[in-house]
């Protein structure tokens, strides 16, 4: 928590988002643009955990659950109500409500941190197994077949609000993803600047002291966890618009990957997880093109190297190096 106003960071986010929307669709080919949209959705997902873990102090191993629920929520709603204008709020409400319910059970049940990690991961894997077992025509919600292992490949893309006959092209979907990422970053900044955010950080620092000062820590933890669930769901919705939803969204691979993005980018920052997600996702994509190399192996090696060489993560390490350079330049 600093006394600095976040205006500069917010302005930078707006400028970067505007530049990305203006430039990238012109210079990238369609496949690369879709990949960039995937990166943006992953960045939103990383940001959601960065907020919950880095500032709320809640190590959630199951952020992928909200990601998957957002994706499935969108796909199912979009297939049932032809206009995606109504699918969006449904897709966001489902993971937020799931996070609120899960958070209520954990925080009001005074579950300890270790068990919280176990519970969140277990819930995610239950959802993974459940969605995997939904093959067959009997597994459908209205007009939407859940599709088992194959997921829902026929997810309709977002359309212009109120105009179902006008689906957005990939360039517009990319713009929506970038706007959502910038909006989530700005929302995170504003939340952390608010009284609620300051109390959340104080609770991370010392939960007992916060209680002794009269703060009901359960309420604050529930609030930040639900916000994280909402953002995770938004990431799932964006992902569903550029790839398709499948049980993989709930997988252990994703659950672990999100944690690695946040750790490598920098815990306790908002921009760090975004950087970590984009860099590592790009690395994973590149590694996937190499013959006889397992991308997970590379991701694991990067994590080990980052923990050993940059224990605070990329962004805090770079910021500290910059501060040292400035001090050295300022010295007579």
């Amino acid at each position: 928590m600093t006394g600095r106003r976040p205006t500069a960071e917010i302005a930078a986010a707006v400028v970067l988002a505007a530049a990305a929307i203006a430039v990238l669709p012109r210079v990238l080919e369609l496949f690369a643009l879709i990949n960039a949209t995937v990166y943006a959705s992953m960045a939103v997902l990383a940001l959601s955990l960065g907020l919950v873990w880095g500032f709320g102090g809640i190590l959630c191993f199951g952020q992928a659950a909200f990601f998957g629920l957002g994706g499935y929520g969108y796909a199912v709603a979009a297939l049932n109500v032809a206009d995606t204008t109504w699918a969006v709020p449904i897709a966001l409400a489902v993971p937020a409500a799931a996070a609120a319910l899960l958070g209520y059970v954990m925080f009001y049940g005074r579950i300890s941190d270790v068990y919280m990690g176990v519970i969140t991961l277990t819930v995610t894997l239950i959802l993974f197994n459940f969605t995997n077992s939904t093959a067959g025509d009997q597994w459908r919600i209205g007009a939407a077949p859940l599709g088992g292992f194959n997921g829902i490949p026929s997810t309709p893309p977002l359309n212009l609000p109120g105009d179902p006959g006008n689906p957005l092209p990939p360039e517009r979907i990319f713009a929506v993803a970038v706007v959502c990422l910038a909006a989530c970053y700005i929302l995170g900044k504003l939340v952390l600047r608010s009284r609620f955010g300051r109390v959340v950080v104080a609770i991370r620092e010392n939960e007992r002291r916060a209680e002794l000062l009269g703060y009901d820590v359960r309420r604050y933890k529930l609030g930040i966890f639900t916000l994280g669930g909402f953002m995770g769901g938004l990431a799932g919705l964006l992902f569903a618009n550029c790839v398709f939803v499948s049980p993989t969204m709930f997988s252990l691979f994703y659950s672990g990957q999100i944690i690695i993005w946040v750790m490598v980018g920098g815990l306790g920052t908002l921009a760090g997880p975004i950087i970590g997600a984009v860099l590592l996702q790009a690395l994973t994509t590149w590694a996937g093109t190499l013959p006889a190399v397992n991308p997970s192996l590379i991701l694991g090696a990067v994590l080990v190297a980052a923990v050993l060489a940059l224990p605070k993560g990329l962004l805090p390490t770079a910021a500290a190096a910059l501060r040292r350079l400035r001090r050295r330049d300022a010295a007579p």
Partner: peptide, 14 residues
């Protein structure tokens, strides 16, 4: 029992 990562004045404000 303190907020280790915060400054003194931030702690008292909270």
């Amino acid at each position: 029992s303190l907020f280790e990562g915060l400054t003194v004045v931030e702690s008292v404000i909270l």
